[in-house]
Design a protein around this nucleic acid. Sequence first.
DNA 1: TTCTGGCATGGAAACGATACCACACAAGAC
DNA 2: GTCTTGTGTGGTATCGTTTCCATGCCAGAA
Lengths: 347, 347
Amino acid sequence: MKKKTLHPTLSHVAREAGVGTTTVSRVINGGHRVNPETLARVRRVIERLGYMPNQAARTLKGHRTKTIGLVIPSIADPFFSSCAEAAQAIARANDSLVMLTVTSNDPRTEMENLDLLIRHRTDGLLIVPANSQSQILRDLLERVAVPVVAIDRPVSDSSIASVVCDNFKGAITGTQHLIDHGYKRIVCLTGESTLYTIRERMRGYRKAMEQAKLNCIIDSSVKDYKSAEYAIKSLLDGPSPPDAIFATKNSTTIHAFEVLQRLNIPVPQSIALLGFDDFELASTVRPPISVIQQPVEEIGRRAAEILFDQLLDERGAASPASRHPVQVKLQTRLIQRASCGCTPPTP
Amino acid sequence: MKKKTLHPTLSHVAREAGVGTTTVSRVINGGHRVNPETLARVRRVIERLGYMPNQAARTLKGHRTKTIGLVIPSIADPFFSSCAEAAQAIARANDSLVMLTVTSNDPRTEMENLDLLIRHRTDGLLIVPANSQSQILRDLLERVAVPVVAIDRPVSDSSIASVVCDNFKGAITGTQHLIDHGYKRIVCLTGESTLYTIRERMRGYRKAMEQAKLNCIIDSSVKDYKSAEYAIKSLLDGPSPPDAIFATKNSTTIHAFEVLQRLNIPVPQSIALLGFDDFELASTVRPPISVIQQPVEEIGRRAAEILFDQLLDERGAASPASRHPVQVKLQTRLIQRASCGCTPPTP
DNA sequence: TTCTGGCATGGAAACGATACCACACAAGAC
DNA sequence: GTCTTGTGTGGTATCGTTTCCATGCCAGAA
């Protein structure tokens, strides 16, 4: 096999072009203060040799790495993959690369990932904290000399910037909508209760129910199809079966829907359904499922924008305004489809 | 605001511990040939200072970057996000980070991304080529001293390793299945015809149709709901309306299904539907949609494994066996649900 | 005693880029 | 004529690691 050419260095170019390294450096950084002829000559040599600057060397010399770290629970989840896509776009617009790591919501994995990213000296960090309350995480992020923006879940009691949804208000809106439809026995279905987002949504549900003087019914055992089936069957066979379901997340909504469908329970006639977080086929399925929609793409975008803002005025004198950390709370939107009892016009 | 502590360096640790830099270096690299007492002392200092090695410096000194580049068309697409997730897992198992870039299938963006990644000197590259036939891409990849594995689409006429699906055979299986059901006028719906995967699937469709002495009907105008509606309406209003649809990709399948549903055309009674590539809710919609399933996660995993194999025996003497590039072709699987006319047992 | 060899350790030269400083030279101001 | 000013250029220290080589030391062999 032919030996592949190793990467030529700046000195190679310099020697080949008969100039000093300084000049070559100037050429690749815009070519200011370089004689036009020299410039052209050096450029030609660069082209011929296929020279590409070594980022590691640049980084070492004190410049930035031109990378940001992204720490998310999962890529397969459409919510996070949309965030990631948006963040990546902003990074690229800022001439930076994204180092992607996934945590599966495991704090240990999260710490390992952060450790790796810090060793790589990413210029900034975008993180969906596995545990919003983790003392260790908070300490690490406060200690390390790297700008951080938390996504989807804040890092509590910390001065870390964050971009999250108003889960509380969203859940109120959703629950209230079911109440407005006249449902009295609304059950809140969930599979988690440690995650910040889920807790906020449950809090919103409770708030709306209490305001309407209705009893809260919460089942947090729904983790997959099996457990959803068991939960729903038990509920329906109980003394006072629910007439509506508020599902606190995507997968819960889908599992609940599958169960109702398999059991041939008409939605919304026998039981209504409203989920938190929209998904691609929510409008295709019969009946179309009403949801509280989050501005998914905007979350990722805003977070990345804030991060790069921080990076920018970290260079110069930080403007006093941006001194205390940004805490963005984005609003959700109720999408009325049929599963809640609405009869939306077919678009 | 309190000034955040900058990163301490190896020399800081050395000074603080009263040893030479060499010793500290040995400690952080396993601590062999270091006096146990010294080892403990240095470790304590490292802990106290929160020292973390600077990857840029390590890289510069000739070691690898401990990163691989991932170049994919999109993250939001579940197919690619699953690939990415699998690849990321393998990378992490090899103590490496993934630099994520997305191309939107645009060759220009692809070249820009590759350029950036090469500047960062990623140890290897995982790429879903936007254009399998691009001469420029082939040249770049062959020239650059970086191991590359192509995913989902091979780089034609090149010695680049690849992991792809047997799209051709998969499409034959799917089409043949429709033929076996007795459908005669099977239309192939697609929205692309430049992508390698789609072309292969169309080729498979044609092959199966020709073997059965049936006429090929191909409509490659389906890009969104609107165009799908137009295409299907035209087809149905035509002189000999189709009795089955073979959709060449995920989004096409979904759009076709939505149109049929909106038009109240019973599936599979009036027209059958079979898609290429599975998706989460395919079994939840009514009727459940039959598909040709790809081993999504395996594609990403295998590709990453092959890449790290290459990285490994690049260090030592490359074994003659692995000399010529690996070309893996993974088999697809027909999932019989109801939309093709099958009556699968409800699991 | 002197030599050999293994251990624990440190000095200093790389790696590839940047940037401070210096220098040479030309053109105009006085 | 000297003094400034600006332009084009290069030498070289530097960033934080690794690694080659050298050193000092002690145990056991000769």
